[in-house]
Design a binder for these strands. Sequence first.
DNA 1: TTACAATCTTAGTCTTGTCTAAGTTTTTGG
DNA 2: CCAAAAACTTAGACAAGACTAAGATTGTAA
Lengths: 142, 142
Amino acid sequence: MPKPSSTSIASQDYLEQIFHLIALKGYARSVDIAANLGVSQASVSAMLKRLGADGLVVYEKYRGVILTPKGSDLAQHIIRRHEVLTRLLRHFGLDEETIYRDVEGMEHHISAQTLKAFTLLANELDQNPALCRTLKRKVRGK
Amino acid sequence: MPKPSSTSIASQDYLEQIFHLIALKGYARSVDIAANLGVSQASVSAMLKRLGADGLVVYEKYRGVILTPKGSDLAQHIIRRHEVLTRLLRHFGLDEETIYRDVEGMEHHISAQTLKAFTLLANELDQNPALCRTLKRKVRGK
DNA sequence: TTACAATCTTAGTCTTGTCTAAGTTTTTGG
DNA sequence: CCAAAAACTTAGACAAGACTAAGATTGTAA
Ligand SMILES: [Mn+2]
Ligand SMILES: [Mn+2]
Ligand SMILES: [Mn+2]
Ligand SMILES: [Mn+2]
């Protein structure tokens, strides 16, 4: 009876990309999902089947994929969380490559409480350029 | 020839606990590692074998486990990172339970750069109790 | 309309990490 | 000293998620 977790780390990453592609081009193709995530197309097929079984996408073989309302809500939540984290890390003057990799990993382990704290902190930093300058200076050189 | 990664997320969590137990009691027993990580003793046996193969512990059946210098260095790095993250999250007034869960997940996805930024930020917050008070107030209630 | 390219799926395999159940070894108390 | 308990390992299974190779479908351009 292992309840289908339905929101594994990998599932979240796929949902995120599917949502992005649909927003950007109107549809999400396997080939693009694969490229964006750096996995094989075969892996995408397998995951779409799983997401379909979990009721997060409607998937018809050879016919592409769309998000269910449930999948879409979840994707938007995932993306907002990703954006908050990115906004926070940008305050430290890290390079975008590093920010992306760290956010892509960290995002799956942030509770609602911590996300709220990070959101508020990012807001505070927005209003405190002096502190941001100090941090950026210390982060890069010694 | 897939080079042994040797530092998977799970490996890091096991190393962390082994180090802690040795620091605390002088030795690390499977039964305690299992309890601390919430896994079965069988899983611990399997992982100790892998850590041994990766040169991170010396493992003799029925005889306990010790860290190699390499394993010890790695464990200390992992623990320092865990502590920095914990120190940062404590500034927001989150409950310890939540902090522990989030840190336990996030810690494996923090680059050296981001870790440095978080360290500096924690330092700044230490010296800015006013900001911390504001954050704590906003994080809890509305 | 048809052949080719692009896209997609399936089949089969692998790795990591987990579990339970069963068997072994070590420790311990009487 | 030895039986029972505690600790530990092995065996066997499973799930997620990845890969490659091979085959199926779709789209397109001549
Ligand atoms: Mn991610
Ligand atoms: Mn993301
Ligand atoms: Mn951890
Ligand atoms: Mn940790």
